[in-house]
C-alpha cells in the first residue's frame, strides 16, 4: 500500500456509539505516588487485562477512551474521584466494577459505576469544586488562620518561570460538618478547568502565612474527599449530576 492511500484510510472517521460507564474510584497506598499519566495507564491496562470491550479513539494513535474528571497530583490520595469509560456495548455496572477491581493494582479500586448515555458535556467540564482533607499536627488552626487572610500569595512554576499567585480566592470554606479534631481539616476549593488550586500550594501558603513548619507541611497527608459540580453551596457530587445526552452524530 502506498503511503498516501494509507493516510487516507487512517483519517476516515466512523461514528461509534459509546456506552459510557461513569465510575467512582479511590486511590491509596503505593499508587498515591504515581503521576496522572501513569495512573491513567494503570486503569487502561486493568481494563485490557479484564478483557472489557473498551472503545478506542480513531486516527493515527488510537487510545482507550477513558476520561478522568480531574487530574490527581503525585502524593494525593483520593476517596472519591471519577472517570468515564466508553465501551462498545451495554455492560452491567456491578459486573464492570467487579472485573476492574479484580485487575487493578493494589491501592486502586472502583467503588461504584453507573451506565450513562454518551454525555454532551465531558466529565472534565462539569467539575467546579473539590473537597480535601489535610491531616497533620495542628493543621485545623493553620487552615483557620489561612481562611482569615485577605490574600494568600504563593510562588508557582508556570512555563518554566516563577509566578506569584493569590490562591485565597480559590479557597471556598472549611467544612462545617467536620469534627473538632485539631489535627485534621476538610475544606472546599475551586477545581476544574476554569479555576483550580493545587493542594501543595495551599500547604505552602500555610508555611508563609500561618507559621506552619515546612517539614510538617511536606508530610501532611492529603486526601481528596469529593468532586462536585455547581456553585457552592449548591454543589452536587459528580455521580449525581444529571447527564445531558449527546445527540449530535446520532
Amino acid at each position: 500500500m502506498l503511503q498516501s492511500e494509507r493516510e487516507k484510510m487512517m483519517t476516515m472517521q466512523q461514528h461509534q456509539t459509546a456506552y459510557v460507564q461513569r465510575c467512582k474510584f479511590t486511590r491509596t497506598g503505593a499508587t498515591v505516588y504515581l503521576g496522572h499519566l501513569d495512573l491513567m495507564t494503570c486503569f487502561e491496562r486493568a481494563a485490557r487485562r479484564a478483557g472489557l470491550p473498551i472503545l478506542y479513539s480513531q486516527g493515527y494513535n488510537p487510545r482507550p477512551m477513558m476520561v478522568f474528571a480531574l487530574p490527581l497530583g503525585v502524593g494525593i490520595e483520593t476517596m472519591c474521584d471519577y472517570l468515564d469509560v466508553s465501551l462498545d456495548r451495554p455492560y452491567d455496572p456491578d459486573h464492570f466494577v467487579k472485573e476492574m477491581n479484580a485487575h487493578l493494582p493494589s491501592g486502586l479500586q472502583l467503588l461504584t459505576s453507573k451506565a450513562i448515555p454518551e454525555p454532551k458535556d465531558s466529565i472534565m467540564s462539569i467539575v467546579t469544586t473539590a473537597s480535601y482533607r489535610f491531616e497533620a499536627k495542628g493543621i485545623r488552626k493553620a487552615m483557620e488562620t489561612a481562611m482569615e487572610q485577605e490574600t494568600l500569595v504563593v510562588e508557582k512554576m508556570a512555563k518554566g518561570k516563577v509566578k506569584q499567585t493569590d490562591i485565597r480566592p480559590l479557597l471556598i470554606c472549611l467544612s462545617q460538618a467536620s469534627d473538632e479534631d485539631p489535627d485534621a481539616v476538610t475544606f472546599y476549593a475551586f477545581a476544574g478547568s476554569e479555576r483550580n488550586v493545587r493542594p501543595d500550594l495551599i500547604l505552602n501558603s500555610l508555611c508563609t502565612y500561618c507559621g506552619m513548619d515546612r517539614a510538617l507541611s511536606e508530610n501532611t497527608r492529603v486526601i481528596r474527599t469529593g468532586l462536585f459540580s455547581g456553585t457552592y453551596p449548591r454543589i452536587v457530587p459528580i455521580e449525581d449530576v444529571e447527564v445531558r445526552p449527546n445527540t449530535a452524530g446520532a
Partner: peptide
Amino acid sequence: KADLMQVESPARYVGGEY
C-alpha cells in the same frame, strides 16, 4: 512522604505492582 515527594518518580521506591 516528604522524602518521597522530594525525589524524581517516587513510584520507583514503593512497590505494589500488579
